Amino acid sequence: MNKSKPKTKPVVGLSIGDLNGVGPEIIIKALSDNRILKLITPVVYGSTKVLSYYRKSMNLEPFNHNPVNNSFDLHFKKINVVNCWSEAIELKPGEATPESGTCAFKALEKATADLKEGKIHALITAPINKKNIQSDDFNFPGHTEYITEKFEAKDSLMILASDRLKVGVVTGHMSLKEVPNALTKEKIINKASILLESMKKDFGAAKPRIAVLGLNPHAGEDGILGNEEQEVISPAIAELKKKGHLIFGPYPADGFFGTAQYEKFDATLAMYHDQGLVPFKTLSFEEGVNFTAGLSHVRTSPDHGTAYNIAGKNQANESSIRSAIFMAVDILNHRNELNPVSTN
Rank of each mutant, 00 (worst) to 15 (best):
residue 25 E to L: 09
residue 250 P to K: 07
residue 113 A to V: 15
residue 342 S to L: 15
residue 276 G to K: 12
residue 269 L to Y: 01
residue 34 N to Q: 14
residue 193 S to C: 10
residue 139 N to Y: 07
residue 185 K to M: 05
residue 121 H to D: 15
residue 304 H to A: 10
residue 321 I to S: 06
residue 136 D to L: 02
residue 156 S to G: 07
residue 221 E to M: 04
residue 118 G to M: 09
residue 72 F to Q: 10
residue 252 P to I: 11
residue 249 G to R: 01
residue 13 G to P: 07
residue 243 K to N: 00
residue 329 V to R: 14
residue 200 K to S: 09
residue 279 P to I: 05
residue 24 P to G: 04
residue 226 G to L: 13
residue 169 V to T: 13
residue 30 A to Y: 06
residue 231 E to H: 14
residue 131 K to W: 07
residue 69 N to T: 08
residue 169 V to P: 05
residue 318 E to F: 10
residue 45 Y to W: 01
residue 75 H to T: 00
residue 196 L to E: 08
residue 131 K to I: 10
residue 122 A to G: 11
residue 6 P to Q: 11
residue 4 S to F: 03
residue 290 N to R: 05
residue 170 V to Q: 09
residue 49 K to R: 09
residue 110 K to I: 10
residue 134 Q to F: 03
residue 301 S to G: 10
residue 48 T to R: 11
residue 245 H to R: 05
residue 274 D to H: 01
residue 93 P to M: 13
residue 151 F to Y: 14
residue 236 A to M: 09
residue 155 D to L: 05
residue 227 N to V: 15
residue 282 T to I: 04
residue 229 E to T: 11
residue 151 F to N: 10
residue 307 A to F: 12
residue 34 N to G: 05
residue 93 P to I: 06
residue 11 V to Y: 00
residue 126 A to R: 00
residue 288 G to S: 01
residue 178 E to Y: 06
residue 94 G to I: 00
residue 24 P to M: 11
residue 11 V to F: 02
residue 295 L to E: 04
residue 41 T to K: 12
residue 46 G to Q: 07
residue 332 L to F: 07
residue 24 P to E: 08
residue 239 E to A: 14
residue 190 N to K: 14
residue 91 L to W: 04
